[in-house]
Amino acid sequence: MPADTAPTANATGRAGLTGLAPEPGVPKPDPIVSGSSITRQFGGLKAVDVEHLEIQRGVITALIGPNGAGKTTLFNLLTGFDKPDTGEWSFNGKSLQGVAAYKVARAGMVRTFQLTKVLSRLTVIENMRLGAGGQRGESMWAAPFRALWRSEEQTNTERADDLLARFKLDAKREDFAGSLSGGQRKLLEMARSLMSDPELIMLDEPMAGVNPALKQSLLGHVKSLRDEGRTVLFVEHDMDMVRDISDWVIVMAQGVIVAEGTPDQVMADPRVIDAYLGAHHDTDLSEIDEQALAAEVAEEIETAQTEGEAKE
């Protein structure tokens, strides 16, 4: 990090984002996650090709982009659920390269999934208890002896009940998680991930399949995460949500980060509009000179051919 952007007293949290250049990969004054040259190739497709990425601590960062932009793949790479071809990244200054997913979670970086993964045949409260980290009763040797883990279980249950009340799931406490609605599952997944008290919480499309009434309360919950000092990174398609709650927006398209900035900056950025709608989206097709277009295409094909031959 260059010396002139070293963290100062007012560079943390949202304050640190003011005045940052809205450029892809711009360094943040107080990054919690920082990564470089992360690539992931699926056959002939480069799903992720991120040159540099930094996520400011204590703010809500949105990761947006059209379908197939590589957002979820980047999520998987950062959390250890997938292995990149190249690249390095760190969390709180600790390198996470080649670190197993469960260790990433233990370090304080917990994720949720696009398709919610509640544990259907466990009750809601059991789902919550599972979320707590470092339980002694989860070791096979201590497990048969209840005295060794009873008090710990008690504390975890109290915490779980508090969180359930906060997420308005307390009425469902004893129900099987599989019987919850889609929106309630999203809430449960979020609440469960809070059981381990993570520093960074990564939400993969928290609004997908949630009814509008529940959306408002979900938005409130996400904001409250930031207000209690956590960092939030989320993938989302719902632009209203992005505009409403995010402090910083990162835009991906075809695996590359094409723009970054505050929501207003990003919405006005021509590169973002291009990525979503195509470069010629506001040109009337009848105005395009067909002859010129045909010549352009012919030239492109020719170049491609000569390049191909040169390679052989």
């Binding site: 197993a100 917990v110 883990w149």
Partner: peptide
């Protein structure tokens, strides 16, 4: 009986349901 009523048994039953979710919560599946 003793093992399955414990948190250890809970992790096991959770793995049966969805191991990715369990991994995302910091357990060595």
């Amino acid at each position: 009986y003793l093992l399955m009523r414990s948190p250890w048994g809970r992790v096991l039953r959770s793995i049966r349901e969805d191991e990715e979710a369990v991994r995302s919560l910091g357990k060595n599946v």
